[in-house]
């Protein structure tokens, strides 16, 4: 997001409100005594409070979401009122790959690994492509191309995730399966990551374009005055100088990818079969096949199973624990961007 300029209405009004004293007319005798009505003054005073309440509502929401998700998510691990489910240990949930809710086994490691895997792969594609497109828009493209790219990115970011999902389902999956897999189903990490990459690229592009545009022109000129080619100046000076903000762009892209649910749910296969494949596989490099084997992530599992579970059951509690995990992850990522931002000033 663009950095806001350091101006505020509050600063402009320092020194108090310009309210006229009762009965004193500034224009001398004869002129009417202009003054604010009681109502206007009251409104001025109380409006402040109204705006404050709106802001506090936002703060309250952050806490509220945490509170409500915790009451349900932590019920999986702690005895709580209204809880009909079994109390689990942290290790049998977070450190186990055994997910068989109907047999009372609740290891969510496959979903954590699935989320990390698909997000990591998506970032592997989107981060370099996004940063390079950013530098292309900011430092290389002619004006018409710059405008075109902005419009393309605006449209890509506006496409709903279910439409990305249906595109993946009806276009990408059949295409991949026909071309490379001898018509075997292609659901899994690879296609999900590809779709996700396109979804998060606009975020990375727009933030890194801003990062490159806000670099002082003297850096670019200085590098080129020494005989850098266009690319040498980009690679050796501009990218290193913009690094903190580029990393922030990637972290925010990562956040978007890890939280995306519907598009991924439509193409990933929704069953962590790749775990069994990796475990039982005898060939030396099962990774490539694992990329095209059905998988599941924290978000897709929530979409898939939440409607089928009863509130308060162990299964339901574990699903909310997964939601809580996602929320905590968001907070960690946002705090990480703060860290990166602070590094920039040093």
């Amino acid at each position: 997001m663009p950095q806001a300029p350091e101006v505020s209405i509050a600063a402009a009004s320092e020194g108090g409100y310009p309210v006229l004293e009762d009965g004193l007319s500034p224009a001398g005798a004869g002129a009417p005594a202009f003054k604010h009505s009681r109502l206007q003054r009251l409104a001025d005073r109380w409006a402040h409070l109204g705006f404050l309440v709106c802001s506090l509502l936002v703060v309250g929401l952050i806490g509220g979401i945490l509170y409500f998700l915790a009451t349900r998510g932590l019920a999986a691990f702690l005895p709580m009122a209204g809880n009909t489910g079994r109390t689990l240990s942290f290790s049998e949930v977070f450190l186990s790959t055994d997910w068989a809710p109907s047999s009372d086994r609740f290891g969510i490691l496959p979903f954590i690994a699935g989320s990390l895997g698909v997000t990591g792969l998506a970032l592997l594609i989107a981060a370099p492509a996004g940063v390079l497109t950013g530098v292309f828009i900011a430092k290389m493209a002619p004006a018409w191309m710059r405008n075109l790219m902005r419009q393309v990115m605006d449209l890509l970011v506006g496409i709903p995730s279910v439409v990305y999902g249906i595109f993946g389902l009806t276009v990408v999956l059949p295409l991949v399966s026909r071309t490379w897999l001898a018509d075997a189903p292609a659901s899994g990490f690879a296609v999900s990551a590809l779709i996700l990459a396109v979804m998060i690229v606009p975020t990375i592009v727009s933030l890194s374009t801003d990062a490159f545009e806000s670099l002082p022109a003297a850096l670019d000129e200085g590098a080129q005055a020494l005989g850098s080619s266009r690319w040498q100046a980009i690679w050796r000076v501009l990218i290193p100088a913009a690094r903190p903000r580029l990393l922030t762009a990637m972290v925010l892209g990562l956040g978007r990818a890890i939280g995306e649910a519907m598009a991924v749910q439509m193409v990933i296969g929704n069953n962590p079969q790749w775990v069994a494949l990796m475990r039982e596989s005898t060939d030396r490099a099962p990774f490539l096949r694992a990329l095209f084997t059905p998988a599941a992530t924290l978000t897709t599992e929530l979409v898939q199973e939440l409607p089928n579970t009863a509130a308060g059951s162990t299964w339901n509690n574990v699903l909310f624990a997964m939601g809580l995990l996602l929320y905590l992850l968001t907070m960690v990522l946002i705090l990480a961007t703060r860290r990166l931002g602070r590094g920039k000033e040093a």
């Binding site: 200085g222 020494l226 005989g227 080619s229």
Partner: peptide
């Protein structure tokens, strides 16, 4: 690029790289 190698430049404000 070669021209700029032969013709160096010092700018109005110092612009060292970070």
């Amino acid at each position: 690029v070669d021209l700029r190698r032969r013709v160096g430049m010092v700018f109005q404000k110092p612009n060292p790289f970070p």
